[in-house]
Amino acid sequence: MTATVPIGEFSRLTYLTIKTLRHYHEIALLEPVSVDPDSGYRYYSTEQVDQAHLIKRLRELNMALPQIKAVMAAPDQAARDTAIRAHLERMEAELVRTRDVVASLRALLLPSAAIDIEYRSVASYPALAMRAEVAREDCDVWCEHSYGTMYGQLAAANLAPAGPGGATYATEFFEYDRGEVVTFVPIEDRHRDRFDPESMLDLPARRFAIAVHAGPFTEFDRTYGALGSHVAEHDSALAEPVREIYLVGPGDAEPEDYRTEVCWPIGRL
């Protein structure tokens, strides 16, 4: 059995203020079952209590009102549950990101440890490569796709890479959150004829100042900052992308165990 209650009582049943209930009526999110034509007073059904509770919890999860309207308008319970699960997954991902940023911020409060820098001359070498203009927010997905493609090509040719994969990022990638990203996987020179020349890249010989970044990519800015500052203060950097070499990366270990060489080009051999 259901009953009809005035807005004040419905407010008490749902923990939603009268002001909020009026707003939800105005935007057609939660409409009363009837409105007195003379007084304009709103009345709600007790069947709407569960809907109000759902809306309240979705708002507490920071779901935008247009999204909540879409959830409430879902054609059936399964579609509604799917939309809610998708939002929960986004919230969980945001919680992970927040946790990582908090840990990083705590680390910034500690005295900075000295960074170990090695100078190394690297000869030119061939590699399978893929390049694209990539937005920073899409970089992880694109890199996963490109490495999967290149390692798939090697597997199809029954070959192993000649070293760890790497990548370079154009200056625009940092300046505008979008720029050319080149991913590469070294191969032996004697095998280059087995691949499309368009998929090949000869990385030029360079002298680098190199620091090893240990840990997740979320902390890369600190390694870039320390190494780049050292180069600016003690060397002369080339106007070209820094090379990143992924000694231990995704698929090999957990993020806290990643190891990446950050190679700052400082001159020709």
Rank of each mutant, 00 (worst) to 15 (best):
D140E: 15
A129H: 01
Y119F: 11
M150Q: 08
A114E: 14
D140K: 15
I187P: 06
V185H: 09
P126E: 07
A155L: 12
P186G: 07
Q153P: 10
I117E: 11
D189Q: 14
C139W: 12
A162P: 04
Y176V: 15
E188K: 15
G165Y: 00
P111Y: 00
R120P: 01
A113R: 15
G179H: 10
I187M: 13
M150F: 01
R178E: 09
I115K: 02
Q153H: 12
L159N: 01
H145G: 14
G148M: 03
E137L: 13
I187C: 06
T168Q: 09
E172K: 03
P186Y: 13
S146Q: 12
R120Q: 14
E144P: 00
A162G: 12
V182H: 11
A156S: 05
W142Y: 11
E180G: 01
D138L: 12
P161E: 02
G165T: 00
V102R: 09
P161R: 02
D116E: 07
S121H: 15
H191P: 05
L105N: 07
A129L: 05
Y151L: 13
M130K: 13
A113N: 15
P161W: 01
V185S: 04
V185W: 04
A127L: 05
V134R: 09
G163I: 04
A170P: 08
E175G: 02
R106C: 02
L154I: 07
P111Q: 03
I117S: 09
G166R: 11
A170V: 02
R178V: 12
D177V: 07
E118R: 13
F184G: 05
G166K: 07
A162M: 08
E118G: 03
S146E: 08
D138E: 15
F184M: 14
C139A: 14
W142M: 09
V185F: 05
Y169G: 00
I115H: 04
D116A: 12
S112N: 08
A155V: 05
M130A: 09
A114F: 04
E175Q: 13
H191V: 12
L109I: 03
R131P: 01
G163D: 07
Y176N: 14
R192N: 10
F173K: 03
G179S: 04
A167E: 08
V182D: 10
A127G: 06
P111W: 01
R178W: 08
S121A: 13
M150G: 08
E137D: 14
A107N: 04
V182P: 03
Y125K: 10
A132T: 02
H145D: 15
S112P: 09
L110K: 09
T168M: 10
P161K: 02
R192Y: 12
A107S: 09
A135M: 11
C143D: 08
S112F: 05
V101A: 06
A127K: 04
F173H: 06
A103F: 00
A132Y: 01
G148R: 00
D189K: 14
I115G: 06
F184E: 08
